[in-house]
Design a protein around this nucleic acid. Structure first.
Length: 307
DNA sequence: AAGACGAAAGTGGTTGA
DNA sequence: TCAACAACTTTCGTCTT
């Protein structure tokens, strides 16, 4: 796939994924960061004063976002800085410091609760640790930018998780997030869009093929059917049938066709349910697949074989 | 009787003036 | 900010197996 490492040293999976922005290679199965010393394209920290310069040195214990204070605290100024000021200014700084203290403890309380919720939902969905970490990072940034105000904490957590899943190419549907978090689908979608826009996180449209393994296994389809579905998807992409369409619908249709071809027929209803779309959508995509990919003959052939 | 099919109307989100 | 628009859903009647 990329560079020199082809297999995850932790679990042996070959399901590795290159995150261009962070310059990391991540194992999609166990979440291990396999290679992280690649060129880093992400923005460097800026240094405003002696304090932030010190805190942002790239040494010391690793920072993690799944701990509510990232192992770091925040204070306004240091004593040495304060006493260099005159009386009036000094009082001002004491007041600021008091407020900073109040605000930061409020943020920390919020984060503590939110990250507990995040952990709960993530483990319910069996998400890899890398995704959980990414979601925690997104949530922390959201809190710091005041994006949670006016929204429920839970919905922002769900939105952050959804975004993290997409970035790591282990997409879950909005329905699944909704079920796991107890937040309405459209609310998650709304906060997801809001948060990603405000934080300037770019997310590639999710690839239908990423959904295939999960859908196939809940339908108990054979590996052959599954890999054939992926091939069908690739053909569909070449025929430009995929752009602008919901990825889950396309994945579902490809799986449906593939199941027919392998004599493992599932009803449209069954496929529709696991993919979280309606039968109508499957029918539409299915029809397009048959039209453009000339699969009619093969379907008829298998029909004769398995009456 | 169940599944597949398709038409028609409704929904929520994006886009472009 | 509003209207046009595409994708998708819901609903329902008909056809096929």
């Amino acid at each position: 796939m990329v560079g020199f490492i082809k297999k995850c040293p932790e679990c042996g999976s070959i399901n590795l994924f290159l995150n261009q922005d962070k310059g990391e290679v991540i194992c999609k199965d166990c979440g291990l960061v396999v290679e992280d010393k690649m060129v880093d394209f992400s923005q460097e920290w800026r240094e405003f004063d002696s304090e932030s310069a010190e805190k942002r040195r790239r040494t010391g214990a690793p920072m993690t976002y799944t701990q509510y204070d990232q192992g770091l605290g925040t204070e306004v100024g240091r004593k040495a800085d304060l006493y260099a000021l005159g009386g009036k200014d000094r009082n001002k700084f004491f007041r600021l410091r008091k407020w900073q203290y109040r605000i930061s403890t409020a943020i920390e309380r919020n984060l503590k609760l939110a990250l507990a919720e995040l952990k709960r939902v993530a483990s319910y969905l069996k998400l890899p640790a890398s995704v959980e970490e990414e979601a925690a990072r997104i949530y922390t940034l959201s809190v710091q930018r005041g994006l949670v105000r006016g929204r429920s904490m839970e919905s922002v957590v769900a939105g952050a998780l959804y975004a993290a899943c997409r970035r790591h190419e282990v997409p879950r549907t909005l329905d699944e997030l909704s079920e796991a978090s107890g937040i309405e689908k459209k609310e998650i979608g709304r906060t997801y869009r809001f948060v990603t826009r405000e934080l300037g996180i770019t997310i590639l449209p999710s690839n239908p093929a990423d959904y295939i393994p999960r859908f196939a296994s809940s339908l108990k389809l054979s590996p052959e059917t599954q890999s054939n579905a992926v091939e069908i998807l690739e053909m569909a992409q070449k025929a430009e049938l995929t752009s602008g369409r919901g990825p889950t619908g396309i994945a579902a249709a490809a799986l449906y066709v593939s199941a027919l071809l392998h004599g493992e027929k599932r009803t449209q209803r069954e496929v529709a349910d696991v993919a979280g779309v309606t039968e109508v959508t499957i029918r539409n995509r299915y029809k397009e697949l048959l039209d453009k990919l000339k699969l009619e003959k093969e379907i008829k052939k298998t029909r004769k074989k398995n009456p």
